[in-house]
Design a protein around this nucleic acid. Structure first.
Ligand SMILES: [Mn+2]
Ligand SMILES: [Mn+2]
Ligand SMILES: [Zn+2]
Ligand SMILES: [Zn+2]
Lengths: 147, 147
DNA sequence: TCTCAAATAAGAATTATTATTAATTAAATG
DNA sequence: CATTTAATTAATAATAATTCTTATTTGAGA
């Protein structure tokens, strides 16, 4: 999950992304976050390691990563976009209380939904991706979940 | 689906919402929209029938409706919240091309998911609502779908 | 009808994000 | 390795959505 600098650079090269220090730092930071950070969180998180990166660059780089398929946007009903270094199909748990967004692995459920939709189809609509968001509240018993 | 003014007023009274002209007009407008409008769309749509309502009032009223359970927010990766007069469980189709959000009825699929989750549970999480968003593109064959 | 707490209009303020532009930098080339 | 140059960045201005402030208006109850 956390890639080395060399790996990132070759990944960038493959995708035709010019490799710069801000870009590698931002991408590494996004991957290291244990939750789904906003642009500002990444901006702040970076300052220790690489002060001087501007917020605009963070935004532009995140956009680039999204466009090149290295990251996904995650939206909530707050006015702030979050980013996700995971781009494979997975489910998000939204906690109404803490406002945290957690990854939830359930390949079986995803498969059930996909099988159903692939068999049935949606008249007049060509679907390419399904998104399952589950809202609720973290319950007292602590589970070590990826935020 | 489209309620009469008297119905709206009694609905408001039940929920402890003071009935005012802006509120009833905004709520009626939201219900009449065949798609999932933004605050500004409602603001503009209202002007014919009731000019003079301010945009701030539209925002405040929509927030109130959401809080009282008469409307839901619908978010997209654009920086603009949409509103939905439907508050029952239903699926949304997001068209990447037209950016339209359509309601999709599939009680069977919803039931399958609910059954699965209710049986299995999510460790450490108390879920209250699931949201299924299906992304893709409207296909050429025209289907009369609720936007 | 009168009263008054609650709601509204108008516009200022805030916040997240995007655009502009001059300076910097990374890759390609010799 | 030094040079070239197009792409990237920092700084900051601009924009767009939403929220806040406050003086005025309004609707529900007495
Ligand atoms: Mn915005
Ligand atoms: Mn905003
Ligand atoms: Zn995720
Ligand atoms: Zn809907």
């Amino acid at each position: 999950m956390i890639a080395t600098l060399t790996e990132i650079k070759s990944q960038f090269k493959e995708l035709g992304i010019k490799s710069t220090i801000p870009r590698t730092v931002i991408y590494q930071s996004l991957m290291k976050f244990e939750h789904h950070p906003s642009a500002e969180e990444i901006y702040l998180g970076i300052q220790k390691k690489y002060a001087g990166v501007s917020l605009a660059t963070v935004y532009k780089t995140l956009d680039l990563l999204v466009q090149k398929g290295l990251a996904h946007k995650v939206v909530t009903d707050e006015d702030k976009v979050r980013y996700d270094a995971r781009t494979d199909q997975h489910i998000h748990l939204y906690c109404n209380k803490t406002k945290k967004i957690m990854d939830y692995e359930d390949p079986t459920l995803e498969q059930i939904i996909m099988d159903y939709l692939n068999k049935k189809g949606i008249p007049g609509f060509n679907f390419s991706q399904i998104q399952v968001n589950i809202k609720g509240e973290i319950s007292n018993k602590k589970i070590n979940r990826k935020l």
